[in-house]
């Protein structure tokens, strides 16, 4: 017996192994590089532009210096809250339905439309919201923006919810039914509650996704420079404000756009962090 790597084949295999590993490492590094670069760049450009005014002031009229993006920060929170109000029940409901009544025609249809809807460009979702909300109400509004974001959120949330609920094995559902628990309670209190941590992650991811959307808000929520004036009024948002400021020719606005990018990133980051905390809590106590 000789177990040492001595033959030509053994050595060749080792070399290939090293080569493959090396290549994968390089590719992996390339993949994370943009993320790190974006982060660092936004930190460098964004932090110096931050000030208390940035959070507390609305934009100043053209020509005056100073001002902030309080309008956009509040607007984004409102838009995300609105889209959750519409999107969470519908998205979660559709996901639960697809998971629990998997073989029905309705489920197949839901799955098909969700998949199509996920791949529709977000600007088209914006156009759709324009046609069904803005035009009939004859106004840009937070409602329209929230609706557009919800349309983006729903299929993502529905599909992730479905996948997560399907991780609960079928025999767990049967065990619930066999105890004389009504079907919908088995669904809600055993299957849904049992995958709560996963569901929450799905919700957070979809919120993080829509929080940064620009295109669907351009002609729905539109934007304003004076702060929140009601759900039926044009509403500012960070992405749209960044978009407008970045396209402007003014250095000061560019700086504010960087600051806004930084804040948007931090908001998404905090939301992500929150899931982790909740996730840990849930695992810890149960």
């Amino acid at each position: 017996m000789n177990l040492k790597a001595e033959t030509g084949r053994d050595i060749r295999r080792k070399i290939y192994n090293k080569l493959a590993l090396g290549m994968i490492s390089v590719l992996g590094a390339l993949a994370i590089m943009p993320m790190i670069l974006i982060f660092v760049y936004i930190l460098i450009e964004g932090i110096p532009a931050l000030s208390l005014d940035f959070f507390l002031e609305n934009p100043k009229p053209l020509g005056e210096s100073g001002g902030g993006m309080a309008n956009a920060i509040v607007g984004t929170v409102i838009l995300v809250a609105l889209s959750c109000l519409i999107g969470l029940p519908v998205g979660l409901g559709a996901g639960i339905f697809m998971a629990e009544y998997s073989y029905t025609k309705t489920s197949k249809l839901l799955r098909f439309t969700s998949d199509i809807l996920t791949s529709v460009p977000s600007i088209i979702v914006g156009l759709f919201a324009y046609a069904v909300v803005v035009k009939p109400l004859k106004a840009y509004s937070a409602w329209a923006g929230g609706f557009a974001l919800a349309v983006i959120m729903i299929p993502i949330l529905a599909r992730t919810t479905e996948e997560i609920l399907k991780l609960i094995p079928h025999h767990i559902r049967e065990a619930g039914l066999a105890l004389g628990i009504p079907r919908w309670r088995v669904t809600m209190r055993i299957v849904f509650a049992g995958s709560f941590a996963g569901i929450l992650t799905g919700i957070i991811l979809s919120v993080a996704r829509i929080a940064g959307e620009t295109a669907p808000l351009l002609f729905t929520a539109f934007g304003n420079n004076f702060g929140f004036r009601g759900l039926g009024q044009p509403t500012a948002s960070l992405p749209v404000q960044i978009y407008n400021y970045a396209l402007s020719p003014y250095k000061e606005w560019h700086d504010q756009a960087w600051a806004a990018s930084f804040i948007l990133l931090v908001m998404v980051f905090i939301v992500n962090l929150l899931t982790r905390v909740v996730f840990k809590d849930q695992r810890g106590e149960s």
Partner: peptide, 19 residues
């Protein structure tokens, strides 16, 4: 009501997750 009167234990142990 039938299942409240006729219980069942399965082949694989299946405690409810997260409970």
């Amino acid at each position: 009501n039938v299942r409240k009167k006729i219980g069942m234990v399965f082949q694989k142990p299946n405690p409810f997750p997260g409970m």
